[in-house]
Amino acid sequence: MLSEGLVDLQRAIDVEGLWQSSLRLVQSTLHHHSCSLMLGINDYEPVAARHHVEQPRRPDYMPATSLAVSRPYLASHPRVQLYTFSQIALEDPQAHERRLAQEAGLDEWREFVHLAFWHEGLPQAVFSVRRSARQAHFSADEIGFFEQIYPAIDAGLHRLRALEQERFKSFAFEQALSRSSSPVILTDARGNVLFGTPDGRRLSERWARSHGAPLDASDLSADLSRAIKARRNVGSNELAQTLRHPVDVDLSVTIDSSWFGAGLRIEPCYLLQFTAADERPRSQERASEILNRLSPSERKVALLVAEGLRNEQIAQRLSRSRRTVESQLNAIFGKLGLVCRAQLVKALS
């Protein structure tokens, strides 16, 4: 049962899954009064928690979302992974008073085991398992059980933090795209639409309708999907590819695979920028007006991009590091409200 429970912990992809897996492990292994997973700890106080009570003395009882009892102990024992209430009480004569104050005078539990999880020297979560006066103190074997599950919960918390960072990056990226007025679609290597601006989705549907096969906004036409797969097969992530619609002569699309290996996703991403010659662009700034919005150093980079040079070539031409060129290019995108090289080339052409 322990091995199955550890596998469940390894599969958890959100806090609720991690909590339920940890709770099932405890319920299947030892007697207890209640369990809590306390999260978002700031100045040794959690801002959120999951609770479960096995046998409350009062039907409305719920443990406090607080580390008031163990705060002094945590502060004086940085990075401690496992401790009990008995250990705290041996060092701190006020611990019993804080326990009753935390529980608003109730006496629901008498002992606990805490697993403390740390990140960059600060506690990020505490998993608490409590016992009442009717239940025995935790045995050496039971402490051994907690020592066994600690690494799995710790790894799960690290994984959830990494996933949350990826979700935040994805959200920020979508927000940046959504502010763009350009008609663009972001897809994976199989042609599945990951994100698109309203105009991008509209022109993608127009592309499909012109083939006589109306599609949902979450799909691409078969020929565009094939074009994306072909670019991946040849490993082309240097130059953008422009396709003109075989029937709707005013419609074209540029496929830019410069997002290949960008780190946002494990697999490649592709940006499709649509152009409709029969629709007036929202902005018709001349190239000179666009360049005036950039610093002299940024203008040099932008013009070399427009010539078709890659970052390494630009760095060599301007005697700069590649990192400096990449930083300046990101600044250019931000100033002009662009998201890729293809858009910059089109703006300056």
Rank of each mutant, 00 (worst) to 15 (best):
232 R>P: 00
337 G>R: 08
44 Y>R: 03
348 L>D: 13
144 G>N: 14
179 R>P: 00
194 L>C: 04
274 F>E: 02
55 Q>R: 07
314 I>Y: 06
295 S>Q: 11
64 A>E: 09
209 R>Y: 07
53 V>G: 07
34 S>L: 07
180 S>P: 04
142 E>R: 00
21 S>N: 14
207 W>Y: 07
79 R>M: 12
181 S>R: 09
209 R>I: 10
289 E>L: 13
33 H>T: 03
135 Q>N: 05
99 R>H: 15
349 S>N: 06
98 R>S: 09
14 D>A: 05
93 P>M: 09
329 L>T: 13
253 V>R: 01
136 A>T: 04
218 S>W: 09
308 G>F: 05
231 R>S: 08
303 L>I: 12
82 L>Q: 13
266 I>V: 13
146 F>M: 11
143 I>C: 08
146 F>P: 01
311 N>C: 11
79 R>Q: 11
84 T>S: 14
128 S>N: 12
139 S>C: 06
64 A>H: 00
270 Y>L: 01
152 A>R: 12
196 G>T: 03
38 M>V: 15
210 S>D: 02
103 E>T: 07
138 F>N: 00
290 I>E: 02
107 D>I: 15
53 V>Y: 14
35 C>H: 01
10 Q>H: 08
11 R>K: 06
264 L>S: 00
260 F>W: 08
23 L>R: 09
175 Q>G: 03
53 V>H: 07
235 G>R: 04
239 L>N: 06
19 W>L: 02
176 A>V: 12
227 A>S: 14
343 Q>K: 09
218 S>K: 15
249 V>R: 13
21 S>Q: 09
18 L>M: 11
141 D>A: 06
86 S>H: 13
138 F>P: 01
308 G>A: 08
209 R>D: 08
312 E>W: 04
219 D>E: 05
318 L>Y: 10
65 T>Y: 05
327 S>K: 10
339 V>Y: 01
66 S>M: 10
221 S>M: 05
248 D>P: 02
74 L>C: 09
88 I>F: 03
163 L>A: 00
340 C>Y: 04
165 Q>P: 03
322 R>F: 03
335 K>W: 01
218 S>D: 09
94 Q>Y: 13
3 S>R: 08
179 R>H: 10
265 R>F: 05
26 V>H: 00
210 S>V: 00
240 A>N: 12
22 S>N: 05
310 R>P: 02
83 Y>I: 02
218 S>I: 04
81 Q>F: 00
28 S>L: 13
140 A>Y: 01
71 R>C: 12
282 R>V: 14
28 S>T: 15
304 L>R: 15
227 A>D: 06
172 A>W: 01
96 H>D: 15
234 V>D: 08
81 Q>L: 13
35 C>I: 07
126 V>Q: 03
212 G>I: 03
307 E>Y: 06
241 Q>G: 02
267 E>K: 10
112 F>N: 11
347 A>K: 07
59 P>D: 10
103 E>H: 10
93 P>I: 09
324 T>I: 06
298 E>S: 14
182 S>F: 04
136 A>L: 13
323 R>L: 12
206 R>Y: 05
145 F>P: 00
23 L>N: 02
91 E>A: 11
347 A>Q: 10
5 G>C: 09
185 I>Q: 05
54 E>S: 14
282 R>Y: 12
318 L>H: 09
172 A>F: 02
295 S>A: 12
208 A>L: 01
59 P>M: 11
149 I>E: 03
107 D>N: 12
307 E>N: 12
333 F>V: 08
235 G>H: 09
